[in-house]
Nucleic acid binder design. Structure first.
Length: 485
RNA sequence: GGCGACGUGGCCGAGCGGUCAGGCAGAGGCCUGCAAAGCCUUGUACAGCGGUUCAAAUCCGCUCGUCGCCUCCA
């Protein structure tokens, strides 16, 4: 079974073939760090994280690069986003960058996204960007006017191939006034001359200025991944203009294909409307995490395709929460059983082995089909059902079987999807051993009370523990407990 | 105006020509001292109208509706 991915460039699913066997070079457009990230960003980066995790699980050595845009991203008003943030908070531009880059990393860590291998910052790669711009001028793809440099889109005939736009059609739909100094309205800035009062500026062959938004991705992806690399990821709304411009200037620069596969994550909507900072309808990742565990949020995000849209709703999160609880429900039981010293020993039975093999194989097929996490989750639900049947069955599972079952959860739900709860959820103010010992003691006392039909005492223990967030569940082989966060 | 997605049972959400998606909610049952959890059973959905086909949620056309992008966005 081989991996197929939907490629925005060709608008179809293709068999994934890396340039270098066993290695994948991947770039993903990162955030402009001028404000806290919202859950729309969460959906995008969880989606990309799943791509990386699945590639690694499949045995690829992945170099994952994500840029941090800390300069050059201009608002409609012509104002730099970073400078706007700096003025808003009355701090230095680089303080804005540090503050929100850390906030972004905190959020990504909290969502259990694996860190990219390299997170290059645009402001730290100005020389590389200047060099790229110079080469584009030499090759006749760019021109300098009044200290600014623009990319001549008509010099690159394939401009528009990613977003499937035609230049003559673009001209009709333009909504921004034509900068008269540009040769064509569609030309975009590679370098902008800075006004003297502009705080962020660098010396260049064209005078003081700062780089345009798109050139950083070309300079940094080329530097860390090579002139042609495997996967370029990002949000759907970046296809045009950002990705299109990146693509055009990169290929014009090197004369080689830029990225072989373009993966785009669908937008997240709130009540049917796209969540975005400019619309002011955003829920930050930090806010979302106040009410939900990262595992639940990931499960919610992964219950729809990464490249499709997703509507965020409280009812949806709640539904995801319930589903997730059932999905991981056998874990508490298995982990507690594995602590027992009187566990049967022996080989893994054919029934258990088949259950595991089927789940792994179905799960892999789903993930290989363009990272189809909804199907992958449905495989895990079926696995959970089978495991519950085994756990409730007449024969006690032996240690090897319990270990194997747990191991598959760890690999698929844990390593690949990142939705496995920690051994004990919630805040850990005390050691796992102490909690476990105390709860086991109470379980024993309650079992005694039940044996003596002293249900008042047994219910009191159960109710008091529930108030403390410890749920007792009586099963065939004794009572297990679950900690609610 | 241009380009492009999409409309699936109460809700969410897969599906890419023929045979089970899955989750949540609901109903009935088993188990339980009672619960909880789990398990079993239960839902004949594909916006509308035409067409292609032995066969269409799936392909084609039209209509209606929703959304995204068209140089701020992830």
């Amino acid at each position: 079974m081989s991996l197929t991915v939907y490629n925005t460039l060709t608008r179809q699913k293709e068999i994934f073939q890396p340039i270098e066997p066993g290695r994948v070079f991947m770039y993903c457009c990162g955030p402009t760090v001028y404000d806290h990230s919202h859950i729309g960003h969460g959906k995008l980066y969880v989606g990309m994280d799943i791509v990386v995790r699945w590639l690694r699980f499949s045995g690829y050595n992945v170099r994952y690069v994500m840029n941090i845009t800390d300069v050059g991203h201009i608002l409609d008003t012509g104002e730099d986003r970073i400078l706007k943030g700096a003025r808003r908070e009355r701090i230095e531009p680089m303080e804005v960058v540090e503050r929100y880059m850390r906030s972004f990393l905190d959020d990504m860590d909290a969502l259990k996204n694996t860190r990219p291998n390299i997170m290059p910052r645009a402001a730290a790669h100005v020389p590389e960007q200047i060099e790229a711009i110079q080469k584009l001028i030499e090759k006749g793809h760019a021109y300098e006017v009044n200290g600014s440099v623009y990319f001549d889109v008509y010099s690159y005939p394939e401009y528009g191939k990613l977003s499937r736009r035609k230049l003559d059609e673009l001209e009709e739909g333009k909504r921004v006034e034509v900068r008269t100094e540009k040769r064509h309205a569609e030309d975009f800035a590679l370098w902008k001359a800075a006004e003297p009062e502009h705080i962020l500026q660098w010396a260049s062959p064209w005078g003081q200025g700062y780089p345009g938004w798109h050139i950083e991705c070309t300079a940094m992806s080329t530097k860390y991944l090579g002139e042609t690399f495997d996967i370029h990821g990002g949000g759907l709304e970046n296809i045009f203009p950002h990705n299109e411009c990146e693509l055009a200037q990169s290929e014009a620069l090197t004369g080689k294909p830029f990225a072989n596969y373009w993966l785009h994550a669908g937008s997240l909507t709130l009540d049917g409307v796209k969540m975005s900072k400019s619309l002011g309808n955003s829920i930050t990742i930090k806010q979302a995490l106040l009410n939900n565990s990262p595992e639940v949020l990931r499960h919610y995000i992964l219950s729809s395709s990464y490249n499709g849209p997703m509507d965020y709703s409280p009812a949806g999160v709640e539904s995801a929460q319930k589903g997730w609880e059932r999905l991981v429900s056998p874990l508490a039981s298995i982990r507690q059983q594995l602590r027992r010293t009187d566990l049967p020993q022996g080989e893994i039975s054919a029934v258990v082995q088949t259950c595991i093999d089927t789940a792994l194989s179905d799960f892999s097929a789903a993930m290989d089909d363009d990272f189809n996490t909804p199907i992958a989750l449905s495989v895990l639900f079926e696995y959970t059902r089978q495991v519950n049947i085994l756990l409730n069955g007449e024969t006690l599972l032996n240690q090897a079987e319990l270990t194997a079952i747990l191991d598959l959860y760890q690999r698929l739900a844990g390593d690949v999807l990142g939705i496995l709860p920690e051994e004990h959820g919630g805040t850990q103010t005390t050691s796992v051993e102490l909690t476990d010992g105390l709860v086991q003691l109470l379980i024993e006392m309650r079992a005694n009370a039940r044996k003596n039909k002293d249900y008042a005492s047994s219910d009191r223990i159960r109710n008091r523990l529930q108030e403390l967030g410890v749920l007792l569940e009586d099963g065939k082989d004794g009572t297990i407990y679950k900690l609610s966060a």
